[in-house]
């Protein structure tokens, strides 16, 4: 009995309808939180005592970096679910994650470089955080490349799922090896994210944007999953009914 909700999540028509219903409930709070958080971060938060106004980049960099890792984790979990239980919807979720994650990884890379530029004096420094983001971007691009190179959609789903699972096992290894490599050469990163001493006026806008980005990801995911489900359910009868209604 308790498992019926779980089984329903494997059913494409149910998930398709659920996604359509939930999207506005996620999208509007996301818009409010991001707009409010960025306004508070740009205007209300006091300047940092060391980095001045330049620290305000944290309100776009940290949430983007958070997205890049969270989306990869969600993608790998969905891919593993699809591989083990052969659930089509799970593969649709994994496929929907990749472009979102790749684009926010790119944003994290660019904003990180812009944040570091005034402190380092150059736009690129082999900072461990930035290097990890760069490798993560390559992992996303490999995933997208593999998916687009395989014509048969089911094989593309399963092959890219294996890659996503292999990737998620490697992400912590890559991250710690990069940190280890970097610790030999220079002091820690200028990007002190999650520093406990951050005053509430600085921290609250950051938390708002983080929550907003997470909700935004969920909303984007639901829209994309509907598209991916339609592509995987060619000729299913429920598709005709669903499209006849709207």
């Amino acid at each position: 009995m308790a498992w019926t909700w779980f089984h329903r999540l494997g059913s494409p028509p149910y998930v398709y309808a659920l996604c359509a219903r939930l999207t506005p409930w996620l999208a509007w709070p996301a818009a409010l939180l991001i707009a409010g958080g960025l306004y508070a971060g740009l205007v209300l938060a006091p300047p940092d005592y060391q980095q001045g106004e330049g620290f305000r980049i944290i309100y776009v960099h940290a949430p983007s970096a958070w997205m890049s890792l969270m989306v990869y984790t969600v993608m790998a979990l969905a891919a593993a679910t699809g591989l083990v239980w052969r659930i089509k919807v799970a593969h649709a979720v994994a496929a929907a994650c990749a472009p979102i994650g790749a684009s926010f990884t790119f944003a994290a890379l660019v904003t990180g470089s812009l944040w570091g530029a005034p402190m380092w004096g150059t736009f690129w420094e082999w900072d461990p955080r930035l290097t990890s983001e760069l490798v993560l971007l390559l992992l996303y691009l490999g995933y997208l490349g593999l998916r687009s190179a395989i014509d048969d959609p089911q094989r593309a789903d399963r092959a890219s799922a294996v890659l996503a699972v292999v990737g998620v096992v490697n992400v912590p290894i890559i991250h710690y090896s990069v940190v280890w490599w970097n610790s030999l050469h220079q002091a820690a990163s200028v990007m002190r994210i999650g520093k406990p001493a951050m005053p509430p006026a600085m921290l609250l806008p950051l938390l708002a944007v983080l929550a907003g980005f997470t909700l935004l990801f969920a909303a984007l995911l639901l829209v994309r999953v509907r598209g991916e489900i339609l592509e995987r359910e060619r000729g299913a009868r429920w598709v005709a009914q669903e499209l006849a209604q709207s």
């Binding site: 991001i34 960025l38 740009l42 106004e53 330049g54 305000r56 980049i57 776009v60 960099h61 983007s64 472009p99 979102i100 684009s103 926010f104 790119f106 944003a107 660019v110 904003t111 812009l114 944040w115 530029a117 005034p118 935004l216 984007l220 829209v223 994309r224 509907r226 598209g227 991916e228 339609l230």
Partner: peptide, 24 residues
């Protein structure tokens, strides 16, 4: 540094919204 960082992030958000809707 600040304004380009915000511009890039907002552009990524906008492109994601457009891209997701176009896919659907």
């Amino acid at each position: 540094y600040v304004w380009p960082a915000y511009a890039v992030t907002l552009a990524v958000i906008a492109l994601n919204i457009i891209g997701a809707r176009r896919l659907l």
